[in-house]
């Protein structure tokens, strides 16, 4: 197992740790006392490469890159169970969200499919003002090289009037487009 050079890690990690605290609106990883209650209650922990507690530990030791490259931050479903139960009142879900935003900026995307899904989703919102679900499902499955994975469900959905073939749009989508533009102007990576 690879040895951790703590002195180096701490020196390099300080700035990033400060960035996480800032971006998350003041969530301090140093408060975490590693009890694992977050990870014990996490419904997605079974699929993660590191438990949420381990992510907090990486942050405490300045091992930022390792945290940013983990699958965990992408698999987090933002259900807030961890934050609700944390005895130290650390908003862990917020940390996961912040790490994901930073990871994306740095080009670390451990879960490409999930990331593509969110990109497609937002593209649809920007283009149409609303989400075009059929397009989303198909687009995702084609991009994910699994065309029509949900093919068994699609005909039934059409039949039940649950999938619209045409995108839902709002008449004048200028306002929503402007919101995206304004967020970009302020440095948002959308």
């Amino acid at each position: 197992m690879e040895k951790i050079e703590l002195t180096k890690a701490l020196a390099q990690g300080q700035q990033m740790l400060a960035e996480v605290t800032h971006e998350s609106g003041g969530v301090r990883a140093s408060k975490c006392y590693q009890c694992g209650k977050c990870s014990a209650g996490c419904p997605v922990a079974f699929a993660m490469d590191k438990t949420p507690r381990e992510i907090m530990r990486l942050l405490q030791l300045g091992l930022m890159e390792e945290a940013l490259k983990s699958h965990t931050i992408w698999l987090c479903a933002s259900c807030d169970t961890c934050s609700t139960r944390c005895p130290r009142e650390v908003d862990i879900a917020k940390v996961m969200e912040t790490l994901r935003i930073i990871a994306k900026k740095k080009g670390y995307v451990a879960e490409k499919k999930l990331d593509q899904f969110h990109d497609l989703f937002l593209k649809s919102v920007e283009r149409n003002g609303r989400v075009y679900e059929m397009g989303l499902v198909l687009g995702r499955n084609i991009l994910g090289m699994q065309p029509f994975k949900d093919v068994e469900l699609s005909p039934a959905m059409l039949l039940k009037g649950k999938l619209a073939l045409l995108p839902h749009t709002i008449k004048d989508n200028g306002e929503v487009k402007k919101i995206f533009a304004n967020v970009r102007k302020r440095g948002g990576k959308v």
Partner: peptide
């Protein structure tokens, strides 16, 4: 439900 934090796995 807990986590064995020494192993890093839910138990």
């Amino acid at each position: 439900r807990g986590e064995d934090t020494l192993l890093g796995r839910p138990v």
